[in-house]
């Protein structure tokens, strides 16, 4: 601590005369980051491989098949209504601009990679935070910081550490998008009915069995809400991440801004919105059906249910027909698939 030379210490306004040198100390992080570049290489490779994996698959498949896949997925997990919304949104996305599809897939790959890594990191941390009050107290201010500190602040150190490109983009996205998953995982597990946990203990379940057979299944709707929030936050980081040379829709928006090209910016922006709608509806649908489906198995509804029903029907046409007439299981399956 040193006094600035030109001002004298004033008790009523002490701050102008005190300089703790925090900014220059914090700038040391940059130096540290540069010095430790090699240490980060394995992590960098893992993240890079994840992105390349998603991107490779998404770019290789023709758009129509990708759309069909997402529509079927939405139908299976969330029902027909969501399937229609997903289909319309993806078609609208493709129609926005002839060159937009590959860009959207790049963005989707970045977002999915970020979310996947968030889940891998966030679930265990969330579970730990639910189990230990002390850990929860320690991690809360850290999560607050991650969510509120402006992304530009950590953009520079991350670039120094990892270099520009997709990997840095994913890392800054994770910093921003991870907290809600941890918070909601912790909340979900804490909210599990303590009576049910006690019952499991009374019947001799060990802590791991309680975790996997009781707590996680019952916390799933809340955890899925966390995943949903994480996806939304990851999408909202797309434009900022493009400042460190991440390709995709965000980059389109950024470049259009630079050239004051409102049209291109709107097209890119709408693309991000449509992707957000698709991902949001699918994850929200999963959250709801987890609670509301309740009474039947997941494979009894949606396209798989339809397929299974068709197979049974074709194999034993007479038997299936009689069962249908007498109101047996087959009827439940077929009506479930038409509802679902």
């Amino acid at each position: 601590m040193r006094m600035s030379e030109e001002t004298t210490f004033n008790i009523l306004n002490p701050f102008t005369s005190l300089d703790l040198g925090i900014a220059s100390w914090a700038d040391g992080i940059k130096g540290w980051a540069i010095a430790n570049r090699s240490a980060i290489q394995p992590l960098k490779r893992v993240i890079n491989d994840t992105i390349m994996g998603f991107e490779g698959v998404l770019q290789a498949i023709p758009p129509v098949i990708t759309i069909a896949f997402f529509v079927l997925l939405a139908w299976q997990l969330c029902g027909q209504r969501v399937a229609v919304i997903v289909g319309v949104s993806l078609i609208a996305l493709g129609l926005l601009d002839p060159t937009i599809w590959p860009l959207a897939m790049t963005t989707l790959a970045i977002v999915l990679s970020s979310v996947l890594i968030c889940i891998v990191i966030g679930l265990p941390i969330g579970i730990l935070a639910a189990k230990s009050d002390r850990f929860h107290t320690i991690i809360r201010p850290i999560l607050d910081t991650m969510q509120t500190i402006p992304a530009f602040v950590y953009l520079v150190p991350v670039v120094m550490l990892v270099g520009i490109g997709n990997v840095s983009g994913v890392i800054v996205t994770i910093v921003f998008a991870l907290p809600p998953l941890i918070r909601l995982t912790s909340l979900g597990i804490r909210q599990v009915d303590s009576n049910v946990v006690e019952a499991a203990r009374a019947f001799g379940a060990n802590p791991l069995q309680i975790m996997f057979k009781v707590e996680l299944p019952l916390a799933t709707p809340t955890i899925m809400a966390g995943v949903n929030q994480t996806i939304m936050l990851a999408l909202s980081m797309v434009v900022i991440a493009s400042m460190i040379a991440v390709k995709g829709l965000g980059n389109e928006v950024l470049r259009a801004m630079g050239r004051l090209d409102a049209g291109k910016a709107i097209v890119g922006g709408l693309g991000i919105v449509l992707l957000a709608i698709v991902l949001d509806r699918i994850t929200q649908g999963v959250t709801q059906t987890g609670r509301e489906r309740g009474y039947r198995h997941w494979w009894q509804g949606g396209p798989i249910g339809l397929l299974l029903w068709a197979i049974t029907f074709l194999r034993r046409p007479s038997a299936a027909a009689t069962e249908a007439a007498s109101g047996g299981d087959t009827v439940q399956i077929s009506s479930a698939s038409s509802e679902g």
Partner: peptide, 11 residues
Amino acid sequence: MVFQNMALMPH
């Protein structure tokens, strides 16, 4: 053990 609030597992 049997509980007052049943404590069955809803899932």
